[in-house]
Simulated scan of single mutants.
Amino acid sequence: MRTTPRLILGFLLLALPLGAAPGPAWAQNAPAAGAAQPDPAVPVRIVNRTGQPATALHAVRSGRPDWGSNLLNRGPLPNNAAFAMRPSASAGCHFDIRLVLQDGRESTARNQDICGTPRVELSAAVTVAPAASVAQARPNTAARRVSTGTGFVVAADRVLTNQHVVDGCDRILARTPDGRWLAAVPPAQVDRALDLSILSIPGNPGPALAFRAGPAVRRGESVVAYGFPLTGLLSADPKLTRGEINALGGLRNDQNNYQISAEVQPGNSGGPLLDMQGHVVGVVVAKLDSRRVQNVDNVNFAVKGEAAQAFLRRAGLAFRTEASSGADRSAADVGDIAHRSTVLLRCER
């Protein structure tokens, strides 16, 4: 079984051929030591400004894939009333908060810094459509060739990845963080010059990650790469690697790419590159092949977040953006954020 990745101009593109054995064609971790922590003596007040009573209140550390238990165990929270919450000192400062209203609407505030601002007011409420019933897919164990890569959710049922991850596939499946297999619906939207592709994957593969809206990325910033390298050789769960932005240009001064020191491997292609606030600053795309370029090691590249956002706009897709401000998170917390939105992609031919 061959697992040699495809080589282009000294690039090692990071989709991983698995060479399986017939496949129609496509076009909660603890905060870091020294990090800020909530003061149990100072309650966090969550204020209902939605105009009607809330029947459920959920508050979980940012990045957790579920909402946990309902904190309103003594009855509804009236409009204009506040709920006092006392997180433990080890809970960290960043929380996602949700009110479920009497009429079924929801009001959500994500990534709230409860240490800096121990009062959160929720007002805007939206109607949440029931999740569509989508049958799970099954991998084709008789496929002639199989390769894997990574993607991440950028909008409802839309996953961003590299074009080379999905090029030539007869069928594409996504394994979600909760273990479901969902089938992508062709055709994919692609930008070959950027090596990006948008997949339509019905069935709620996860919440959308936010792109960094500012400030501008600088050389030396810490970043986290998240994805599924060397699937079939390493464990099946996603891998996190830390590194830095080495250069603001890529191979041959390509201004659509960053050079990064976060080491990536075949299978990482299409995964998110995040800053230490948990916002997307790039899409992992390739590494320099040390077998083709002598005396060079650990030179990796990611498509810049700005270029990816421009592609999403051209595709008519609405996506989330958030400014990166405040204290950095631990790598473990950034990984928690990435985890619920990052999928393993399986290409069957």
Rank of each mutant, 00 (worst) to 15 (best):
A20K: 13
A20R: 14
A20E: 14
A20N: 10
A20S: 15
A21D: 15
A21I: 08
A21K: 11
A21M: 10
A21G: 15
A21E: 12
P22Q: 14
P22K: 09
P22F: 08
G23I: 01
G23Q: 07
G23M: 03
G23S: 08
P24C: 13
P24N: 10
P24G: 13
P24T: 11
P24I: 15
P24L: 15
A25H: 04
A25S: 06
A25E: 12
W26C: 08
W26R: 10
W26D: 11
W26Y: 12
A27E: 11
A27P: 14
Q28G: 14
Q28A: 04
N29Q: 07
N29K: 08
N29G: 12
N29F: 12
N29A: 13
A30S: 10
A30V: 15
A30F: 11
A30W: 07
A30D: 07
A30Q: 14
A30L: 14
P31W: 02
P31E: 03
A32D: 09
A32R: 10
A32G: 15
A32M: 13
A32W: 07
A33Q: 12
A33D: 15
A33E: 08
A33G: 08
G34L: 07
G34T: 04
G34M: 03
A35V: 13
A35T: 04
A35E: 12
A35H: 08
A35W: 01
A36P: 10
A36F: 09
A36T: 01
A36G: 05
A36V: 07
A36N: 10
Q37R: 11
Q37T: 13
Q37D: 06
Q37E: 15
Q37P: 00
Q37N: 12
Q37G: 15
Q37H: 03
P38R: 13
P38M: 08
P38D: 11
P38Q: 11
P38C: 15
P38H: 09
P38L: 10
P38Y: 05
D39T: 02
D39K: 06
D39A: 14
D39G: 12
D39E: 06
P40R: 13
P40I: 07
A41L: 12
A41S: 12
A41C: 07
V42K: 15
V42Y: 02
V42R: 14
V42T: 14
P43F: 10
P43Q: 04
P43Y: 05
P43L: 07
V44L: 07
V44Q: 06
V44Y: 00
V44T: 06
V44F: 02
V44G: 02
R45Q: 09
R45L: 08
R45Y: 05
I46E: 03
I46V: 13
I46D: 02
I46A: 00
I46F: 06
I46C: 01
I46T: 00
V47P: 01
V47T: 04
V47D: 01
V47R: 06
N48T: 00
N48Q: 02
R49F: 00
R49T: 02
R49C: 03
R49V: 00
T50Q: 00
T50K: 01
T50M: 03
T50I: 07
G51H: 02
G51D: 05
G51W: 13
G51A: 02
G51E: 03
G51N: 00
Q52V: 03
Q52Y: 06
Q52W: 00
P53C: 02
P53N: 08
P53I: 02
P53G: 00
P53M: 01
P53S: 14
P53Y: 02
A54K: 01
A54S: 05
A54G: 06
A54N: 05
A54E: 03
T55Y: 05
T55E: 10
T55R: 10
